[in-house]
Design a protein around this nucleic acid. Structure first.
Length: 117
DNA sequence: GGTCTGACTAAAT
DNA sequence: GATTTAGCCAGAC
């Protein structure tokens, strides 16, 4: 068994990125989550930035468009091929997005710590 | 190896 | 209420 109690050991770094990708991939269609929620699930709630940074290095099979900031704002849209990609992907899944913000964000919110528990 | 930055968040001003 | 500060950690220079 691997140790996973370390708050963020040197070996955890790689696992951290990998875990972020796994969690994001586990997000159900039509659902979204926040960087903080993922960070909290991984035990690094104080480092939501790392989740965002992990997304920056995330492979294409990671639906990063389902990850937004805690306000439901598409903060990362600008990192996609085009600023419209993120919104279009979300709308395609039935999520309404207006002015770069998800409508009824709370209703679409998916908390890994609660759903995957 | 020190410094800067970054797709965040919360609290303080 | 909008702006700033502070905290967190890993990657790039």
């Amino acid at each position: 068994m691997k140790k996973q109690k370390a708050p963020l050991g040197p070996e955890r770094a790689k696992d951290f990125f990998r875990d972020v990708y796994e969690v994001v991939k586990l997000i159900p269609p039509g659902r979204v989550t926040s960087y903080g929620a993922i960070a909290a699930y991984l035990g690094t709630k104080l480092s939501a930035r790392m989740v965002g940074w992990a997304m920056n290095a995330s492979p294409p099979d990671v639906p990063a468009h389902r990850v937004v900031n805690r306000n439901g704002l598409l903060t990362g849209k600008h990192h996609f091929e085009t600023p419209d990609t993120m919104q279009q992907l979300l709308e395609k899944e039935g999520i309404r997005v207006e002015n770069d913000q998800i409508i009824n964000f709370e209703r679409h919110f998916w908390d890994p710590a609660a759903e995957l528990l």
